[in-house]
Design a protein around this nucleic acid. Structure first.
Lengths: 258, 258
DNA sequence: ACCCAGGTCAAACATACGTTTGACCGAGAG
DNA sequence: CTCTCGGTCAAACGTATGTTTGACCTGGGT
């Protein structure tokens, strides 16, 4: 009667199922669970209304599976790769932090999966449900732990809790732009889709954070000069207007355009 | 026919109207516009369903008026008073920033109006509507401008945009805890309702931010010792366990010694 | 006395919701 | 061919939504 459907099968299933999940991710992330109607959802997915019952059983389980899938995609997002091989020197760690923050803003500029993950996470945070656990264990926690790992190199004496607070301070600054984007853009004159602006913001967050972590100015300067040849790194000079289109340099290639 | 109702009359109206607005603020802030049903709302308010039509005209206009009222209450919230009389010395500015951040966490610990404002703001940011403008002009903008004014004292050479980014870096850290509270609490072991914990977090954000603003360590130390007699300011010493119930000094005078 | 505006109430309104049903189609097995 | 099974489809299900209606009560004005 009801456990006949393939429900939460792991492997990628039919195209119908995937279309459903894609549309669900897009809409749930944009407007939240309650604000999305199934008819609108299946219309966007291009499938029949009954498909959701067949493949998932109910709207709620579609949502849960959507969140699960989105959160698990974290591991394949290139941004976190900048933190992955835990750096050994202070210089490397500072550089990793800079690249990480820049990567966040590159992804957010591209309206990518990161936005969907973050928005799903936020909706869950504001109105928690069964999906919260998934969000925490497979998204939030790994992120702050990875970042804390890098920060640990920068602050040798700190204990776990202190590192966690540091990591959250860095993430909080970036999250602020990611989640409150419409407000920030309307409030300030900024437009986060311009590469120059988002780059400036990213670098501001990076330097602000490195200083907050008591990293020496020399290291900060070196870390900011990571990708360009040398280019006066510090001081509020307007960043190069439109020359660099791929702000991430070394760690792995960041070309995720799709 | 429809503009007969008193709609958006300014002065405080009937108790019915106020009960409606109170319940609306609570529910809309908690679950968002779409997730709240009128019947649930009027039940919580203890009034008849038709009252919303009579006093506001529709659910949408009830919501708009709710947001407007919540955002305008900003001026009467004591937290921002810590920033109001723009300090003249670096020490006073640093102290103001510390007290401000601490005040934020005190309010958030009390589940106060601040949470409602912030949550309404966030819902608007994630799914913008006509109310976004109100949120920006009467809440977001004044806040970052007030904070930027204080920061301007700490960073004499900075231009407007730089000050704005600094202000957002500070606010972003605090917002992160306010908005993602359920996630943070489940992810870390923290409990933000404990005064000791929230005080530690607030002080961490304050010091992190002051260092991010290149404030000298001496000033940082002095600013953190604002309310207590002197008490080893830095180094994560356990804050006073349960002695201070009102971490904010008097609104005008920020020398909190009492 | 009458009237009328301010305000509340239960009931009905039309629509939209999530869910369910039963028919239908194509392909593989016997 | 027949039978079954994975999968899709339009239509209907019952309920919950936001909104509207018209009766009703109350208190002052004249």
């Amino acid at each position: 009667m009801e456990s006949r459907a393939p429900h939460a099968v792991a492997g990628d299933g039919s195209p119908t199922r995937d279309a459903l999940l894609d549309a669900a991710e897009e809409l749930f992330a944009a407007h939240g669970y309650a604000a999305v109607g199934m008819r609108e959802l299946v219309a966007r997915a291009g499938v029949n209304l009954s498909a959701v019952k067949y493949h998932f059983g109910s709207k709620r389980e579609l949502y849960l599976e959507t969140v699960r899938r989105a959160m698990q995609r974290r591991e394949s997002m290139e941004v976190w790769a900048a933190l992955e091989p835990r750096p050994s020197t202070v210089d490397a760690a500072a550089k990793a932090l800079v690249l990480f923050v820049r990567g966040l803003f590159v992804m957010m500029r591209a309206r990518s999966e990161l936005s969907a993950c973050a928005r799903l996470m936020l909706h869950e945070a504001m109105d928690p449900s069964d999906a919260l656990e998934d969000v925490v264990v497979s998204f939030t926690r790994p992120n702050v732990e990875a970042l804390a790992g890098v920060i640990a190199v920068l602050r040798p004496g700190a204990d776990r809790q202190e590192l966690e607070l540091d990591a959250r301070s860095v993430l909080g600054q970036a999250l602020h732009y990611l989640l409150l984007r419409p407000i920030v853009e309307r409030s300030a004159g900024l437009s986060l889709s311009e590469s120059g602006t988002s780059r400036e913001i990213a670098d501001h967050i990076a330097t602000f954070s490195l200083r907050g972590l008591r990293v020496s100015e020399a290291v900060v300067g070196r870390a900011l000069a990571a990708d360009g040849p040398k280019k006066n790194p510090i001081a509020a000079g307007e960043g190069a207007p439109a020359s660099h289109e791929a702000p991430m340099g070394d760690p792995d290639r960041m070309e995720g355009s799709r």
